[in-house]
């Protein structure tokens, strides 16, 4: 059963990667990356029990925290960049 769930999660991660490659906007890519990170945490938890090694749960917990901070940091970067661009446009025009 763990194997079926982990294969489903792996297929979903592949679909998210395809969405990240297709775009079209930067927010679609961020959505795909965020989804990929959450699915990575789930996959790590399932694999921990698939192979009977509960140590993997620590990795999953650390990855959940890092993924959240990473997504927020990249979002903040793009948001401030687009605001700066809009301000430049107003100043220039």
């Amino acid at each position: 059963m763990y194997l079926v769930v982990s294969i489903a999660i792996l297929i979903t991660m592949a679909l998210a990667l395809v969405r990240a490659l297709l775009g079209p906007s930067v927010y679609d890519r961020m959505l795909a990356v965020n989804m990929f990170g959450t699915k990575t945490v789930l996959l790590l938890s399932v694999i921990a029990f698939l192979y009977g090694r509960p140590d993997f749960l620590d990795l999953a917990l650390a990855y959940a925290l890092i993924n959240f901070v990473g997504v927020l940091a990249v979002l903040e970067f793009f948001q401030s960049r687009s605001i700066r661009r809009a301000a430049d446009r107003v100043d220039g025009g």
Binding site: T38, L61, L75
Partner: peptide, 20 residues
């Protein structure tokens, strides 16, 4: 540990979605 992961994901995932 699983409860900790669950609480963590349930706090962060909607927040990240909202920010996005």
């Amino acid at each position: 540990k699983l409860i900790a992961i669950l609480v963590c994901l349930l706090l962060t995932s909607p927040t990240a979605s909202y920010a996005l």
